[in-house]
């Protein structure tokens, strides 16, 4: 799945990291350059384009009226979907979502859902019958590592700039007022910070080359107040409790930096 990395490149990356250096000149706890543009797709109720280094994602948020789940009749629904477009990397294939794509969508979904970014109670139109369903579609355009952090940042931005029509109920019928659009009920902000373990050390925001040589990966989702809302470990090597507790502290600082892009 990952591309084959020449042994000499692998060793040079590990040696650099052992000397607290990285191939692209960053320090171990430094993100690449980040850019975030809001409302880039006018036809989508909410949208954002995120770039972290050369990684580029486009996210659209689209509302639709649907039935609620039977166990949560008073809550709106959030659906996260991701496509690793074959244009983004020579290793991505067209066809149904593969495991990487499903993992990305599910981790982002957990981070946003458990982070309670959107107040789903306020998206109920008729209890038990009609609610707003918000689709988040993550379109990966260019893949150079660390999709998770970019996807969560873009999804939260797209939710924050999304506008939905006002829905009122008259005689059990829903009337949508397209003239009067209002923003989604945003509760909280949640962001994700991903680390890769390479040669015994952890680096933040791994590039594609670093992801190809990493032993293990850990993504930590955090809310504005520093509470943890999602985590995902990837890769084959184990990780210790002490390492993890240390990373949580770094993640708090780093998600604080990412928050500034949402202002």
């Amino acid at each position: 799945m990952n591309s084959i990395v020449p042994e000499i490149t692998r060793r040079s990356i590990i040696n650099l990291i052992n000397n607290e250096e990285r191939a692209d000149g960053r320090s171990l706890n430094e993100y690449r350059e980040i850019s975030l543009e809001n409302g880039v797709i006018e036809k989508s109720e909410g949208s954002a384009r995120v770039k972290i280094g050369n990684t580029q994602l486009l996210i659209g948020a689209k509302p639709q009226i649907a039935e609620p789940f039977p166990d949560t009749p008073t809550m709106g629904v959030l659906m996260t979907n991701s496509e690793l477009l074959p244009m983004a990397s020579p290793t991505f294939e067209p066809g149904p979502p593969d495991e990487r794509s499903v993992e990305l969508a599910r981790v982002v979904d957990r981070c946003i859902r458990q982070g309670e970014v959107v107040d789903l109670e306020k998206l109920c139109i008729i209890e038990g019958e009609k609610v707003w369903m918000i689709f988040l579609d993550i379109h990966v355009l260019d893949y150079d590592g660390n999709l998770m952090d970019a996807a969560v940042l873009g999804c939260v931005a797209a939710l924050m700039n999304a506008k939905i029509p006002n829905a009122s109920v008259v005689d059990n019928e829903i009337i949508l007022d397209q003239e009067k659009m209002s923003p989604l009920p945003i509760n909280e902000k949640a962001l994700m910070c991903t680390f890769a373990k390479i040669g015994g050390k952890f680096v933040v925001d791994p590039s594609l080359l670093e992801e190809d040589v990493m032993d293990t990966r850990i993504s930590i989702g955090m809310r504005e107040d520093g509470s943890i809302c999602a985590m995902q470990k990837g890769g084959t090597e184990p990780i210790t409790k002490d390492e993890l507790m240390n990373l949580i502290n770094i993640a708090r600082e780093k998600t604080g930096e990412l928050l500034k892009y949402l202002e």
Partner: peptide, 17 residues
């Protein structure tokens, strides 16, 4: 060639694929 429309490219969300 693969021509593909993003789910958010049109007024009513297009199902992916």
């Amino acid at each position: 060639c693969r021509y593909n429309m993003a789910p958010f490219s049109v007024e009513d969300r297009k199902r992916p694929g």
